[in-house]
Every structure is written in structure tokens, then in C-alpha cells.
Design a protein around this nucleic acid. Structure first.
Length: 435
RNA sequence: GUGAAUGUAGCUCAAGGGUUAGAGCGCCGGACUGUGGCUCCGGAGGCUGGGGGUUCGAGACCCCUCAUUCACCCCA
């Protein structure tokens, strides 16, 4: 449909009236990251397609069918970033950040692009908040990453989230486990769903999160990766678990939890909200100790997560969590008698006053359409103005004005000279929830 | 990529195959140019998602297409 007036599939317009929700969540992110010692990093929305092939993995669904990849005018194959981690890893190496004090702790915030069928909580352009720690191989880093996510959710008032945890081992123990899994499933090949039969050779770990009814009994009895960890991985995992318990961080051990990206090692986790329907994963992450090497760098450990902000906003809605309202108009200057005796002198004076208020730090506005006082009051009300002051020939002459508190209708007398100061003190005492 | 449901005004929805497609809310204006919320009155706003077909006649029925929503797959 060649409609000029339609946005591309799977994208959203964030309208002015809902923007304060985004700003609030973004402020919460910056605050929690500062407290945990993470610095923001901004990487391009486009990267060389090869970067994702080398990191995310060529045989993952994400790369096989979900990326926006195109050739630019110079013949380069570029990909619109489908996730944040590879770009951060690339920037880390390219800028020599491994020479700065370790560990390196970053966060990022911005749009990701995946060509998928949109549905509840799933978009072709969505916004992710992610963190990465490079150069910290111990389980304390895993803890820190999980803790910052949970702290972020709690700061928004979200508590009904469940943390799912698993460990999928490392290059020294995973191949053997993988083979054990293949052997197990091969013996039951006939009972598997067609999807699983296809995935068996290619990516056997994926069979563990099959949702097909018939595969459930097999899945329950399947050998778990946790039982096949090498000593190092097992120690890492048990230490992490005791740390989590020490912090009272509830989690569910989920041996069927696997991730769709190739670079994960050892710890993987998801944070899930039940009320979102099928797309309930609000945060997904884990450890990726081989990632930096995959990009061509030295061996540097990594751990992090991505949080889908659209899903977080959706969760806040479902949980009926009220966010502070937008700042809005704080003081509206209504012009009286402009048609009659006012003239340019009045208009000029109103403009002066308006700019004075704005310079004083007050969100002030006035009427520029020459409307009746009644219309101006109505407009101020609709715009949510907290205070209104009427300025006309009388006020100019006497220097006396009345500031009206819109929520209560109460009026406070003052002088034109003190207007900004009085407005400020009134705003300070006017509760946010008055309206 | 697969399956299902739904597309009518900015939003939520009416209109049993039959005049000029309506209502509520919202928007703009008037009653009301020195005070908002209430009330009354008026106005703007529609290629009924798009294309084809059936019919004397289609918003409605059929086909295609596009979009939205939900689910699968996968993920945040």
C-alpha cells in the first residue's frame, strides 16, 4: 500500500503525550548505572555485516532471517544492529579500551532492528538498555550484572518478575555435553516433533526449549548442562548461586533455558514477567568469555544483558504503576482586554514578562491567537497549567496581579516584580498529584 | 516464514444488500473580550485501508492485496 501516511511495519511513533514515560525510565537507567559505576557508550546503528556473523553466529535465527542487511553505495555490506553487544565489543577493541583500567563497565541505550512478525511486545525497531562488563571473569561480575537489572526493575516499582538461571558450560565442557544430548535424543528420534528432528544435528541445545506437547516428557528427562559442567564452570556457577542467595535474589534454576546467540558461555539468565503474553522476557543476558576473541582481540571475559524497554513500559502499564506526570505548563499568562484598550504596549509587556519567567526557570506560556479571556482560561486548563495569571491594563497600571492555582481555584496576590519568585514558591508547594 | 481474527471521522464504535454513511469523545467557534472544569448551540473533519468481482444497487457478499492484533517460530 503506497500510503505516505503509514509508518513501516513493526515501528511505533512515540507521541508527545507519552514521552514523559520514556524520559522517566531513561532517567532511572542513568541513575542506576551511575550508582553501579557503568559509563554510557554510544555505537553506530550500522555495523559491518561481518561483525554479527563472527559474534552472534551465522546459524542463529537472528542472523539467518531477522537482520536488515544492505549494501551501501560504496559496496560495503552493512547491517542495522539487531543487538548491542557486538558493537560495544568492536568499539572496545577499536579504541584500545582494554588498555584502560579493568574491568570496563558500559551501558548503552538505543534502537535495535530485527525483521520479525510484530506482535505484543515485539517490534521491528525496539529499544534496548544493555550493560557489559569486560575483563572480569569471576562470578562477582555475573552477580553485579544481575543485580543492576533487578535494582532497575525495583526502582520502577516492578517486583513481580522472576529470574531464570542456567549455566551452559564453556568450550572445554560443552562439546561433551552437546554430544551427550545428541546421543540421548537420537535414541528417541521417532518421538520428536519435526522441528526438533531438524535442529538435532545443527543446534541440539535448542531442543531443550521446545514447546511442543509431545516433546515435553523427553525434555523433562533430558540430561542437563548443569550436571555436565567441568570443575571450573561448576565452581563458577555454585559461587554465583551462593552470592545470589546472600543477596536474597530469588531465582529459578531452569535447565531448559538456552540462548539464541552463539557467543554465550557459562551463566545465562532471563528475567520474565508473566503478564505480557508470549513475549514475557523483559531481560536476557549472560556471560560471553569468547566474544572479544571472536572479534579479533585478546582473551577478555565479558558478561552483560539486554533489556527491552517497550516491554518494560508495557509491564508498567499492566501493573498499573503510575509514573510522575509530564512537567507541563507551570504558569500561563492570560491577556485581558487585548482587543479593547491593550494594544501593542500590553502585548510587549506580556512578552517581557513571559521571557522573564522562562529565564527564571519556569515553564511559562501565553496566548498568541488573540483569544478571549475565557478561551485562554480554557486553553490553559486543557494544557494542564498549574498557575494562571491575568495581565491587562489594570494590572499594568497598578503593578498588582493575582496568581490563580488552577487545581483549587485559590488566588494569591502579588506584584508584577515578584511574579517569578511567587510562582516558584507556589509551584514548590503545589503537589504533583493535585490534578 | 505459518495460522487465526479484525480494518468505517483524530479516538471508541453504529449503519438488517436499498436515499446524502451516523453517534459519543476530542478539536475549532458561538452563547460568554476580566477568569477554566458544567450546560446549550454551531462548524470542520470520511475515496468506509487499496484493487478487482457479484448485483439494478456494495461500507456490508466473493477474490486478491496491504495493514493491525493475537498466537507459532524466535527473542528484548
Amino acid at each position: 500500500m503506497p500510503l505516505l501516511t503509514h509508518r513501516p511495519r513493526g515501528t511505533v511513533d512515540v507521541l508527545p503525550r507519552e514521552m514523559h514515560r520514556w524520559h522517566y525510565v531513561e532517567a532511572a537507567i542513568r541513575d542506576v548505572c551511575a550508582r553501579f559505576g557503568f559509563d554510557e557508550i554510544r555505537t553506530p546503528l550500522i555495523e559491518h555485516a561481518e561483525l554479527y556473523v563472527r559474534t552472534t553466529g551465522e546459524t542463529t535465527d537472528l542472523l539467518e532471517k531477522e537482520t536488515y542487511t544492505f549494501e551501501d553505495r560504496g559496496g560495503r555490506s552493512l547491517t542495522l544492529r539487531p543487538e548491542g553487544t557486538p558493537g560495544v565489543a568492536r568499539a572496545f577493541l577499536e579504541n584500545g579500551l582494554q588498555n584502560e583500567p579493568m574491568p570496563a563497565k558500559f551501558y548503552y541505550l538505543g534502537p535495535m532492528f530485527r525483521y520479525e512478525r510484530p506482535q505484543a511486545g515485539r517490534y521491528r525497531q525496539h529499544t534496548q538498555f544493555g550493560v557489559e562488563i569486560f575483563g572480569a571473569p569471576g562470578p562477582e561480575a555475573d552477580l553485579e550484572v544481575m543485580l543492576i537489572a533487578v535494582t532497575f526493575f525495583r526502582s520502577l516499582g516492578l517486583s513481580s518478575l522472576t529470574v531464570h538461571l542456567n549455566s551452559i558450560g564453556c568450550p572445554s565442557c560443552r562439546p561433551a555435553y552437546r554430544q551427550t544430548l545428541i546421543d540421548y535424543y537420537r535414541a528417541h528420534r521417532a518421538e520428536l516433533c519435526p522441528d526438533c528432528r531438524r535442529r538435532l544435528e545443527r543446534n541440539p541445545l535448542r531442543l531443550l526449549d521446545c514447546k511442543e506437547e509431545g516433546c515435553q516428557p523427553l525434555k523433562q528427562a533430558a540430561p542437563s548442562s548443569i550436571a555436565h559442567l567441568c570443575p571450573d564452570c561448576a565452581t563458577h556457577f555454585s559461587r554465583l548461586r551462593s552470592l545470589l542467595e546472600r543477596f536474597g535474589l530469588d531465582y529459578t534454576l531452569d535447565p531448559t533455558l538456552v540462548r539464541g546467540l552463539d557467543y554465550y558461555t557459562r551463566t545465562i539468565f532471563e528475567i520474565i514477567y508473566q503478564g505480557l503474553g508470549a513475549q514475557g522476557t523483559v531481560c536476557g543476558g549472560g556471560r560471553y568469555d569468547g566474544l572479544i576473541e571472536a572479534v579479533g582481540g585478546p582473551s577478555v571475559a565479558g558478561v552483560g544483558y539486554g533489556i527491552g524497554l517497550e516491554r518494560v513500559l508495557l509491564t508498567l502499564e499492566k501493573e498499573n504503576i503510575a509514573l510522575p506526570p509530564a512537567r507541563g505548563t507551570e504558569m500561563f499568562l492570560a491577556v485581558a482586554g487585548s482587543g479593547a484598550g491593550g494594544g501593542d504596549a500590553l502585548a510587549d509587556r506580556v512578552q517581557d514578562l513571559l521571557y522573564d519567567l522562562r529565564r527564571a526557570g519556569i515553564a511559562a506560556d501565553t496566548d498568541v491567537l488573540g483569544r478571549s479571556l475565557r478561551q485562554q482560561m480554557r486553553y490553559a486548563d486543557r494544557r494542564g497549567a498549574k498557575l494562571v495569571v491575568v495581565i491587562g491594563p489594570d494590572e499594568l497600571a497598578s503593578g498588582q496581579v493575582k496568581v490563580k492555582k488552577m487545581a483549587s481555584g485559590e488566588e494569591v496576590s502579588t506584584t508584577l516584580a515578584d511574579l517569578a519568585a511567587v510562582a516558584k514558591s507556589l509551584l514548590a508547594t503545589t503537589g504533583e498529584t493535585d490534578r
